[in-house]
Amino acid sequence: MTTPNNELRVKASGVDIAGLRKSYGSNEVLKGIDLTVKPGEVVCLIGPSGSGKSTLLRCVNLLEQPNGGTIHVAGFETTDPEVNLDKMRQNVGMVFQQFNLFPHLTVLENCTVAQLKVLKRSKNDAEKTARENLERVGLGDFGGRYPDQLSGGQQQRVAIARALSMEPTLMLFDEPTSALDPETVGEVLSIMKNLAKSGMTMLVVTHEMSFAKEVADRVVFMDGGVVVEEGKAVEVIGNPQQPRTQDFLRRVLDPTHVDI
């Protein structure tokens, strides 16, 4: 694994999902998913809305409770009823579509609160780590602001810095640019690209095909609660084999092309 900048090197962990099932009532949204993400690998989950890709992501750090199957992540078996979920989550960063910054805390406090209360770091250490990560997302001067004083793109970058401040070995991204104004999408994607270069393991639910093609080591196409097709990004996106993948990509890449 190549690392362009030594100070950004991260220790990475992987994900191993086997036979994952999840239902809401009688509606089965994940129908036996197998997926492996190797340490340092970047995997993009793509697929139509309702395909279960966000649910799959949320099962990884157990924001959703699976109904069956096993998940190993960052050295923890999250599906083991005895597992220490909080310990596991300290190692798994998550970035949400709606940012979910804490509106009553400053940008800096957003990045230090979990370090202080969960990792029990000293205030100095926590602020140092937070500032490093805010620098990393290009918001070093924004520590004293409140989230609602920032643009959507800036908020999402803070959310990334907040997750990175816990020094996770794996990052989950749940449609991180879907709620953004078009002109701020690029700044968030470029941060994610740098993060990928630093060797972070990333599992990304996204509709940004150019990002997936350029940054992802692997792309997984999901539809109807199953993995339909997976492989190298250029192959799945550039030369899809399954009709459902072809159909989906045609609609995403050329929105004016509609079969009526």
Partner: peptide, 14 residues
Amino acid sequence: PKGQTEAARSLGMP
């Protein structure tokens, strides 16, 4: 919003 709790929990907070 529920997302606040989710963000806090995903940072490892009990």
